[in-house]
């Protein structure tokens, strides 16, 4: 599918212009760039574009981002992302960073709760969704943990549970904001490998932002970068490292 975004930012404060890239089913992409360059904002605007109906509940703006947020259309990101070629039944699912591991939910209950749009008023899932849930647990190796309280899971296991939510919700494009933040080396590698596997096995397109460039490079097909000056670049399969170096000139 082809993604086109004219610009992202808040009101007068424009972070990045002219974003255009393609992403194919089964592809796993890394989104990299210095802090505050607009990675999260980009992921958010992609999600907003991917919500099928805009009539129910707008995503809440994140007011911490950007001093220009005040007074400019209630701080809403003003990007109008255009997604072409995405199947109508598929969704963009964003997994934000730092979801709390609330005590008193089993892993299975957590995944069901995350399927807000997909469940009925009592929180029950349709039969096919329920089957997808079990498939996702199986695929991510979470079957044995399904009835454990999520507060007892490791951060890596919990991150996998979040990925299970995305799969159950039938994500065509799965977006993850900093999935490897707060993880130790072992969990980090496990989560990264899982992302690649999920993309290849289920045909979901995966885009995640991360600062663990070295580890992430081992699993992604291509990279997307945003430079400090707000320029967007898309790499091919071969020039991943050159494009990354451009975004982080000080490191090399």
């Amino acid at each position: 599918m082809q993604v086109n975004i004219d610009h992202i930012g808040y009101g007068e404060h424009i972070l990045v212009r002219d974003i255009a890239f393609t992403v194919a089913p089964g592809e796993c992409l890394l989104l990299a760039g210095p802090n505050g360059c607009g990675k999260t904002t980009l992921l958010r605007s992609l999600t907003e574009a991917g919500i099928p109906s805009k009539t129910h509940g707008h995503p809440r703006p994140c007011k911490r981002e950007g001093p220009a947020a005040k007074g400019s259309g209630r701080g809403r990101s003003e990007a109008e992302a255009v997604l072409e070629g995405m199947p109508a039944s598929a969704k963009c699912v964003l997994i934000p960073t730092g979801i709390p591991k609330v005590k008193g939910f089993t892993l299975r209950e957590f995944v069901r709760t995350g399927c807000y749009k997909e469940s009925d008023w009592a929180g029950r899932l349709r039969k096919d969704t329920e089957e997808r849930l079990e498939d996702a647990l199986e695929q991510l190796g979470l079957k044995t943990l399904a009835d454990r309280d999520i507060s007892t899971l490791s951060d890596g296991e919990f991150q996998k549970a979040c990925i299970a939510v995305g799969l159950t919700r039938q994500a065509g494009l799965l977006l993850l904001d900093e999935p490897t933040a707060f993880l130790d080396v072992e969990n980090r590698l496990m989560v990264l490998r899982t992302l690649r596997q999920v993309a290849e096995r289920t045909g979901t397109a995966v885009i995640f932002s991360s600062h663990d460039l070295h580890d992430a490079l081992q699993v992604v097909h291509r990279v997307l970068t945003i430079t400090r000056e707000g320029r967007f670049r898309e790499s091919g399969p071969q020039d991943r490292e050159t494009v990354l170096k451009e975004a982080f000139p000080a490191c090399h």
Partner: peptide
């Protein structure tokens, strides 16, 4: 009772809830 699943998902933060398509204001 009607709002029950909303009360559940909001425990995981407003960010997470809104990206799951939950109508926060309601």
């Amino acid at each position: 009772v009607w709002n029950r699943k909303g009360l559940d998902i909001i425990l995981f933060g407003e960010n997470y809830a809104s990206f799951s398509g939950a109508p926060l204001r309601r």
